[in-house]
């Protein structure tokens, strides 16, 4: 077990280095450059710009220099497009917004998903169960770039209750649509896991005993079933956290939220290499750390999982 943990933790930087390498060369191989002269610009101006950003140096030198700066100073270098601001600063501004959005929607997804799953499991094979699972299938199938505009259409345009775009903080009306749009998918996944694991747990002896003892169903559910049924839900956390990260790209882009997703999409369209690289690295680290934490927790919680 300890060997496994050490190996997994040591593998983390290797993954990050590999991601850095992959993204660096992918981004640099895309056509186009960062400068958009509307009108003729003298060649010497372009040369100066290239020199300023070290774009005139061999790729391998750029690769190494940037890596050095990132590791030693946490400095991702200047952005090409956004005011030549430092990418680290831009990410530092965008990341909290995406994290707030992500945490809120994962939290909402857990609550709604567990509730829905438990209800479906308790009313197994009734219309309530079928309706819940239909809802779940819907949640799993409808992508964020469909649900976000539809929510905007219904709740911001037809019924003008909510803003149709923008970000004014997590505790404002503007956060409702993006949080719901992001929570839908994970909530459905959680509900499915919750239903299955509740059904698994219900069959176990101690639950039957508790029922036989005549404990009221609510007590059985909260005290015996839920507690154990939650474990598998937690262990798939990596799955829906990663998905939420991906979905922020669409939701932030559509809803105009200045988070990591929009930063990434804008950077790709503007060929802002340093930002592309920064966003990818941060996202990759988040994914890797989440997965590691989830795996370790899972292993630790359930000794039946044998890790080599």
């Amino acid at each position: 077990m300890r060997g496994y943990v050490t190996r997994r933790v040591l593998a983390l930087p290797l993954i990050v280095i590999a991601v850095y390498t992959l993204v660096f060369f992918l981004a640099r191989s895309s056509p186009g450059g960062p400068w958009d002269p509307n009108l003729p610009v003298p060649q010497s101006v372009i040369e100066n710009l290239r020199a300023h950003y070290h774009a005139d140096e061999p790729l391998i030198v750029q690769y190494w220099e940037l890596a050095k700066n990132i590791v030693l100073e946490g400095d991702l270098g200047p952005s090409y497009l956004a005011m030549r601001r430092n990418v680290s600063t831009m990410i530092a501004e965008a990341l909290p917004i995406s994290l707030a959005l992500g945490a809120a929607s994962v939290g909402l997804a857990l609550i709604v998903g567990v509730a829905l799953g438990v209800i479906a499991a308790m009313r197994r094979n009734t219309s309530v169960d079928y309706a819940s699972m239909g809802l779940v299938m819907f949640g799993i199938s409808v992508p964020p770039y469909v649900i976000t505009p539809v929510l905007v259409l219904v709740f911001a345009i037809w019924l003008p209750w909510l803003p149709s775009q923008g970000w004014t903080g997590l505790f404002s009306k503007a956060a409702i649509i993006p949080v719901i749009a992001l929570a839908l998918g994970p909530a459905a996944t959680v509900a499915r896991y919750a239903r299955n694991s509740v059904l698994d747990v219900i069959r176990l002896d101690y639950v039957r005993t508790a029922e036989a003892k005549g404990l009221p169903p609510r007590v059985v559910i909260t005290r015996h079933v839920l507690r154990n049924a939650l474990i598998p839900i937690i262990t798939v956390a990596g799955l829906y956290i990663t998905r939420t990260l991906t979905h922020t790209f669409y939701v932030e882009y559509i809803y105009g939220i200045p988070g990591m997703g929009r930063l990434g999409v804008d950077a790709v369209f503007g060929r802002d290499y340093p930002v592309i690289l920064g966003v990818s690295l941060v996202v990759a680290i988040l994914v890797a750390v989440t997965n590691l934490l989830v795996d370790l927790t899972y292993a630790w919680a359930d000794p039946r999982v044998r890790l080599r």
């Binding site: 590999a18 790209f249 996202v283």
Partner: peptide, 20 residues
Amino acid sequence: VIMAIPDLLLLILLIPVLSG
């Protein structure tokens, strides 16, 4: 490594390279 990057992000990076 491939799975460490969310699929959409990777695709966003790959497509311009491929069409290029």
